[in-house]
């Protein structure tokens, strides 16, 4: 059979081509960019010497949406994000952020963006409050430092210098500086690196609040649970290309038609992939008596789908192929 779950040798059959392009702007639409979306990107390419960092990235984000850019290290998440932010110049394709080409963004355009970069080691000699107050003054309608410090949960560390914060606290300062200007579009490049579980939950609440206010959010992450919790849409990116864009549910349930049934028969673990698990269980119940030993019915998780997408794309990721017991013919 052609399906699989974690810990199984079988191969998942993601209908790649069809999925990949269904929600993407068709080629040749570059000239037709309307600015109606918060972010539009068509066929964006970028190379560094021989390294093709982006090989035609397509992405659309509607106003007020939260999109998670999910992908392994080196997939092109940071390059994509920084092209949107105006830090890097694309080689080809077209980009509009809030209707403006990031290569030509002026002060007012920048005042509508919030940026949290992947790594920052600056501001070490200033206290959290000093930094937040200072950066707030850059914006026409900046938030008060108390609000922001409260929102990111740094109240106790408000008067500590950034150089003395832990990794997760330091990251929260970065997030604070990203939201201090009441951005319309917020970019977060791996914002929760180094967060403990509680800080992560708190961060999720903060993002929920920002979504409530109508902020458009593009965040990159390695954490699938984070993407699942926060994102309206998940864009899976690998080797410089967006492989799929879909809601976490749709992406996670892509294999909904197929479930895996596991059971124990004659002391051997067995499993089978089927579109009709109920029928199979009924059949097993008849054959193996009223209680089927160690019965389990599993659906693929977002992680399964994600890992499979990456693996099918020929990424560097090694999918563990643990032989998970016998399988039914």
């Amino acid at each position: 059979m052609d399906n699989c779950l974690r810990n199984q040798t079988a191969k998942i059959a993601v209908p790649k081509r069809r999925v990949v392009h269904e929600r993407l702007p068709p080629r040749g639409r570059i000239a037709a960019m309307t600015g109606a979306k918060a972010i539009e990107a068509a066929e964006v390419t970028k190379s560094y010497g021989d390294v093709k960092a982006l090989r035609g990235v397509n992405l659309e984000i509607a106003h007020g949406q939260c999109v998670a850019l999910l992908g392994p290290n080196g997939a092109g998440k940071t390059v994509t994000t920084e092209i949107f932010e105006g830090y890097r110049k694309r080689d080809g394709g077209d980009v509009r952020v809030l209707g403006t080409d990031p290569n030509h963004g002026d002060r007012r355009w920048k005042s509508r963006l919030g940026i949290v970069l992947q790594d920052a080691r600056d501001l070490t000699d200033l206290t959290v409050r000093e930094s937040v107050t200072h950066f707030s003054s850059y914006y026409p309608n900046g938030r008060t430092s108390d609000d922001v410090i409260q929102a990111v949960g740094l109240v106790e560390k408000a008067d500590a210098k950034a150089g003395q914060l832990s990794g997760g606290q330091r990251r929260r300062l970065d997030v604070a500086l990203g939201i201090v200007g009441r951005p319309d579009v917020l970019f977060l490049d791996e914002p929760t690196t180094g967060f403990d579980p509680e800080a992560r939950r708190q961060f999720w609440d903060l993002i929920d609040d920002l979504k409530e206010d109508g902020t458009t959010i593009l965040l990159t992450t390695h954490y699938l649970d984070e993407a699942e919790h926060l994102a309206d849409q998940v864009a899976v990116i690998n080797r410089g290309r967006v492989l799929a864009v879909d809601s976490p549910d749709a992406l996670g349930n892509r294999q909904k038609s197929q479930a895996v049934v596991q059971w124990l028969e004659d002391g051997v673990q067995k499993s089978a992939s089927t579109a009709t698990p109920t029928a199979l269980v009924g059949e097993l119940a008849t054959r193996l008596g009223p209680e089927i030993p160690e019965l389990a019915i599993l659906r693929p998780t977002l992680e399964d789908v994600y890992l499979r997408l990456i693996a099918d794309d020929g990424g560097d990721l090694n999918i563990p192929t643990v032989a998970g017991g016998g399988s039914r013919g």
């Binding site: 002060r107 920048k110 963006l113 940026i115 080691r121 850059y138 200007g181």
Partner: peptide, 16 residues
């Protein structure tokens, strides 16, 4: 400042 990201952060703000 260029190395530690100070300037990059500033570049992304509306500060001229």
């Amino acid at each position: 400042e260029r190395d530690d990201g100070t300037l990059k952060r500033l570049q992304g703000t509306p500060m001229p």
